[in-house]
Design a protein around this nucleic acid. Sequence first.
RNA 1: GGCGUGGUAGCUCAGCUGGUUAGAGCGCAGGAUUCAUAAUCCUGAGGUCGGCAGUUCAAGCCUGCCUCACGCUACCA
Length: 720
Amino acid sequence: MLNPERYLVTSALPYANGPLHIGHLSGAYLSADIFVRFLRLMDKDVVFVCGSDENGAAITMRAKKEGIQPQEIIDKYHNQFTQAFDKMGISFDVYHRTSSELHKETAQDFFLDLYKKGVFQEIDSEQYYDEKAKQFLADRYIMGTCPKCGHTEAYGDQCEKCGSTLSPLELINPISTLTQEKPILKKTKHWYLPLNKYENWLNSFIVDGELDNTYHHDATKWKNHVIGQCKSWLDGGLQPRAMTRDLDWGVDVPHEIKDSEGKKLYVWMDAPIGYISATKYWAETNNTDWKPYWQDQDTALIHFIGKDNIVFHCLIFPSILKAKENYILPINVPANQFMNLEGNKISTSKNWAVWVNEYISDFPENIDELRYNLIKNMPEHKDSEFTWKNFQETNNNELVNNIGNFVNRVIVLTNKYYNGIVPEFDQDSMFKGVWDEDFGGFHETEILSLHDELQDLNSYLRKYEFRAALKTLMNISAKGNQLLQFNEPWKLIKEDPESVKAIMNLALQIVNVLSVVLFPFLPFTSAKLRKILNLTEITGKGELLELLDELALGELPLETGHKINKAQHLFSKIEDNVIQKQIDKLKKSHKIVDLKITEPESDNLMEKKAIKDIINFDDFAKLDLRTGTIKAAEKVKKADKLLKLTIDLGDDERTVASGIAMHYTPEEIIGKQVVLLANLEPRKIRGIKSQGMILMAEGSDGKLSFINTDMKIENGSSIN
RNA sequence: GGCGUGGUAGCUCAGCUGGUUAGAGCGCAGGAUUCAUAAUCCUGAGGUCGGCAGUUCAAGCCUGCCUCACGCUACCA
C-alpha cells in the first residue's frame, strides 16, 4: 500500500489503575502523535484513536484497597489521563473509554459473532471457587505461596516478588482474598481462541508481510525486535487462549450464550476492540461512517505500542480480526522499547518515575521541552535513558542556543533593518551559501536545498524514525545559524545592503519553514513562532504539503512585504537548582518506598499468612528434624536460583538442592549451622539428588533467613 | 539453560543488500566573531566497531564459540 486513502492510528490504551509516567509517553503516545500530526500536515485523512482501559480485576482490587467503588477509580484515572494527554499536546481525535455502553455493545457483538461462527473452543476446566462469596475467583483474587520463589503473597497470575507468571493452580495454600477462605476447585466453562490454527497464517503475515499469499505490507520495514519477538512465539508454537474469565468488573459475555452467567470478556477480547469502539464513537460525533477505517483495504492501520504489547498486537489481535473477517490488519506496529530513568528501570511500585501530571504542574510552560528530550531519546530500537541532567543540557544547548537563538537573531535583525517587513531582494544577489558552498549562494538555489532537506525529514517520518527526523529539523536551524555567521549581515549592511536583503529574506524563509515543521514535534513552540511571524497558527490541514509545493516551484511561502511582530524568546534556560530539585525529589520519594519494603507490601490484602490446619502429634512426630552444618555450597549450573549444598549431619552427610541462590552466595553460607528436614522423600532436581530440605524463615519482604540454634550444638542433634 | 533484542568515540546514538583513510549530536581543547538568551561559526583531539576464531580479494556488517545488558521462558521440596 504505497499511497493509502486513509490512515487509522492507535496508541495503546493506558490502564486506568495508576498515573502516567514519561515512559508511557515515550513509548506509545509521543511517537503516534508526531506521526499523526505529520500526516495531517501532508493533508492525509487520518483518525487517531485511544482511550482508557477500564476493565479487569486489578481495578476492583485497587478500589477495595482504597475503600471506594471501581467506578470512582476509573473516573479518577480517566480524567487524569484526559488532562495529561491534553496538556502534553497529544492530539487524539477521540479519547474513549472501555466502560462505555458503546464499547460493551461493540465487544459483545464481536464475541457473539465469533461464537456463532464456531470460532471458539469451549473448554471446561477446574477453577477456584469461593463458596462463601459464591463466585469463581479471578486470578488476582487468589493469593498463596509462590511455587517458584516461595514468596507467601503471590497472586494467582503472577508473583510480584520473583516476577514469574503463574496459574492459580500452581499456588501453594491458596486463599481467597474476598473472604480469606480456602477456595475449592469447581468446574467452569470458558471460550478459547485456537491460536494454533492461525499459526501458519500468522507466520506469513509477520515474516513475509503476506495475507493468503497476497502482498500486504513490507515486512523488512518492521522493527527487528518486533519481528524477533513474534517469531520467538511462533517458533515455540501457539496455544489456545481463553477469551473469557470469571471476573466481576468488565464486559459481560453475551447473555445469549449458554453458561455465560458471571463471565466477562478477557482483556484480549476487550481492550483492542476499544480501538474499534473509539472509532465508532468518533464517527458518531462527527457524523461520518466508521467502517471504511476498519474495513476498507485502502486504509493503513498502524498500532503504536510499547514492547510489552507486541505479542498482543501482532499475533492475538490480528487473529481475532482474521476470525471476525472483513477487518483490515496493521501495516506496521512500530513498538518502542523501554525508557529507563537515572540508571534504573522506571517502576510504579518503587515510585521511581517522572509522573506526567507532576511534570505538568512543575513545568507548566515547558511542555515542548519535555517532548523534545523524550523524542531525542526515544527508545526506538533499544532501551534508552532519561536523566534530568540530559534534559537540562538538551534544553539549554539545543533548544535555547540553536533553534531559539537562530529565530531570535533573525527576528531582531529584521525588525532592526526593515522595521519588521520581509524585504524584497534581487534574485541575482550572491552570498555565501550554506548547503552548497562550492557554488556560492543564490536565494533560489538555497531554497531548493531547503526543499531537499524537508524531503529528508519527510522520509524519516514515513519510516517512523522520529529521532532522525528531529535531527533533520535541528539541522535546518543550524544551517540558518551558519547563513548568518558566514555572511555577517551586521557587517555587510554597511557595504552591500542589497545582498543583506537576500540573506535576510532567506533566513526568514527558513524561520517560516521551521514554524511548520516544528508542529509535529513541538506544537506549542510552533504556535508561538507563528504568532511572532504574525501568521495563522498551524492546525494540520496540509500546510507542509503546500509548503513543499511552493518551495519546489521557487515561490516564497513567506511573502515579501509581510510585517512580522517583535522578537520574543521561544525557550529559556533551565538553571541547575531547578534540575537539582527534581533529582532530589525523585531520590526522596524513592527512599520512602525503600523503607516500606520491610513492611508488608501495601498492595497485599492478606497481611499475614493464615495458620494452617491443625495436625495431631503423630503427624508432627513423623518429621525428623536435625541440626547440620553447611560444609560445601556451589551454584548449580543452568539454574539461577539453585544452590547445591553439602550438609554435615555428624555421622551422615547429605546433598541438598535449595532455591536460595538469589539470597545467599555460596561463600557466605559455608560453615553455617542449619536445621534440616532429614526424612523428606529424596527428589531429583536439575540432575541433583536432593536429600532433605533446609528450613528457612521468610520475612514479609520475601527475604529468607536460616533457622538456627541458640548456641552451637553438635551436628545431627534431633529437634523436637 | 533456551529464545529474542542490543553491546560502535567521555555521553546519547547513525551506519542501506560486506567494498576505498568508520560517522553525527552533545561534551572537551584551540581559534574567529558580536546581530543574538556569554548565544554563534571554524578547526582539532578522541574509537584494535564487546572478545576470540573462521568464511572472503575485502567484515562493524556473514558464520561459530564466548562475554555483558535488557525482555520472555525454564529450573527453584
